[in-house]
Design a protein around this nucleic acid. Structure first.
Lengths: 246, 246
DNA sequence: ACATACATACTACCATGGTAGTATGTCAAT
DNA sequence: ATTGACATACTACCATGGTAGTATGTATGT
C-alpha cells in the first residue's frame, strides 16, 4: 500500500487507470490536489460533466488513478466556489446553472472590474497599452478564424491584464472565482461568431477610453461590456431550459 | 482505532484533550471541519495566535482532540482566504498583516459595498429601515458602554443586512472573506472609543442617504466610511510595526 | 575557519480503512 | 393500495499510517 510516487516512473501498465471519461490523466510527480481540481473544473465549465450530475469521491479517484483525499479536497474547493453542491452523507452534484447566481456573479464582477478600469484610466504605463493592443490584434485573428476556444483564452488574458497592471492580484482572484458561474453560459454561446465581433468591439472601446484617460467613459464601456453576458444568459434560459435553471 | 463519535458521549476523562491554548473544545457530535475552521479563524483575527507563528496539522489536532484531516481542511481553506501561508513540505504559518493586502481588501470591499448601497438607495423596504435603525440604537449603547466586542458584532450585522436586503448573499460572502484581512487591524483599534463614535456617525449618514433615496450620497458616505480603516492601518504600521508588515 | 556529506527531526501530502448517516428496494402487516 | 420495518448499497466524513521533501545540527575533510 501507499506506493505513492515511488516506482511509478517505471511505466507500469497494471491497472492503467481507465480512459477517464474525458478527464486527462494526472502527473503523479507534481502536487496532485491542484491538478484534480483543475481537471474537474474544466470538465464542469466545458459541460463535459452536466449540471445535476453526481460526482463521487470514489468514482473520480478511480477514474483519475489517485486516492480519494485529493479528490475530496478538490470537491470541497469547488463547492466553496459554487460549482458543486455537497450534501453531507448524500453525495456531491454539479450545481445547476442558476440564472440568479449568474446575475449576482455579474453584479460582483461589474462592481469590481469597473472600479479597476477607473483606476487604470487615471494612470497606466505605455507598455501596458502596447501589450493589450497586441492582445486585441490576436483576438481579431481568433474571431476571423472562428476559433472560439482561442478567443476565450485571449479574453481571459485581456481582463486579467487590467488587474495585473493595477497591481490588484487578489481582485483578479475574486473576479476569476465569480466568473466561474458565467463561464458555462459563455461556453454555450461560443459558436456565435457575430456575438464575438460585438465583444471585440467593446474591448476596443474600453482600451480607447483608457488611452484617452477618460475614467468615466472607461467605466461605462466596461459596464456595458460585462452586461452582455446577462442577455445571453436570459436567451439561453429559454433556448436551453434543460441546462439553465430559472 | 477510529472510535469517532461512538461511546464518546460517556464523559471519559482519559486523554481529555489539553487546555488547548485558547481554542474552545470541539463538539464531536456535529461536523468537525467547520468548527475547527471557525476556532482557528477566530484565534487569528483576535491575535490569540500572532502573525508568522507556525501552525502544524499535528499539534492543532492534538490541542483540539480531533484527527489531522479536518484540521488540514481548515488550514487549506484559511490559506485560500489569505490568513495562512502554506509552504509545501515545510509548514503552515499565520500570514503577517501586510499593509498591501489590507489596502487591496479595502479596494475590493469598497467597490462592492458602494455598489450595494447604491442599489438600496434606489429601492428598499420600509421594514429594512426600521430594522437597521434598531441596530444603530444598539450600537449607540455599545459605544456608550465602551463594549468593543459588541460593537464589532453589531457592525458586522449592519453591513451584512445591506446585502441581505438587496438579495446579494454571495456578495456578502466575498465581502466577508476579504474583510478577514482587515479584521485584525480593526481588532487592534477597538479600544479607541472616540474612533467608535466616528464610525457610528458614519453609519447614520449612510442610512440617512438611503432613506432620502439619494444613491450618490449613499455611495459617497459608504466609501468614506470604509476608507476609515486605511487610516488606522497606516497608523498601526508605525505604532505596532512589530505586527504590521509594510 | 570553512565548506561538505550525512543523520535526524520535523513538515505537508497522499493512501486507505472504518463509521454514521441517508436513500432505496423488499416484504410483511394492515 | 398504504404503511411500516428492515436489509442493502450507497455517500461524505474522519482517523491514521506511510512517503517524499525540507531544514538543521553535526560531524568530517580540506
Amino acid at each position: 500500500m501507499a506506493d505513492k510516487r515511488t516506482m511509478e516512473d517505471t511505466i507500469s501498465d497494471k491497472a492503467a487507470s481507465p480512459p477517464a471519461a474525458g478527464l486527462e490523466p494526472i502527473n503523479l510527480r507534481m502536487p496532485i490536489a491542484p491538478q484534480v481540481y483543475e481537471r474537474i473544473r474544466r470538465a464542469i465549465i466545458t459541460l463535459a460533466i452536466l449540471p445535476s450530475e453526481a460526482l463521487s469521491e470514489k468514482e473520480l479517484s478511480l477514474q483519475l488513478g489517485v486516492s480519494r483525499t485529493p479528490v475530496r479536497e478538490a470537491l470541497i474547493r469547488l463547492a466553496d466556489e459554487g460549482l458543486i453542491d455537497i450534501l453531507p452523507q448524500r453525495g456531491s452534484f454539479v450545481a445547476p446553472i442558476r440564472i440568479r447566481d449568474v446575475e449576482e456573479a455579474q453584479f460582483i464582477r461589474e462592481s469590481l472590474e469597473v472600479a479597476v478600469v477607473g483606476r487604470l484610466a487615471g494612470q497606466c504605463s505605455s507598455q501596458f497599452l502596447i501589450d493589450i493592443k497586441a492582445n486585441l490584434a490576436r483576438q481579431e485573428l481568433a474571431v476571423t478564424q472562428e476559433d472560439g476556444d482561442l478567443f476565450l483564452e485571449l479574453d481571459e488574458a485581456f481582463h486579467r491584464s487590467f488587474c495585473e497592471e493595477a497591481g490588484l492580484s487578489k481582485s483578479w482572484r475574486v473576479i476569476q472565482t465569480v466568473k466561474l458561474q458565467m463561464d458555462r453560459v459563455r461556453y454555450l454561446s461560443l459558436p456565435d461568431a457575430i456575438h464575438l465581433r460585438t465583444l471585440l468591439a467593446q474591448h476596443w472601446q474600453i482600451v480607447s477610453a483608457i488611452e484617452q484617460k477618460e475614467p468615466e467613459a472607461a467605466r461605462a464601456a466596461m459596464a456595458a461590456h460585462l452586461q452582455e453576458v446577462l442577455g445571453t444568459a436570459h436567451w439561453l434560459s429559454v433556448q436551453r431550459a434543460d441546462l439553465v435553471e430559472r
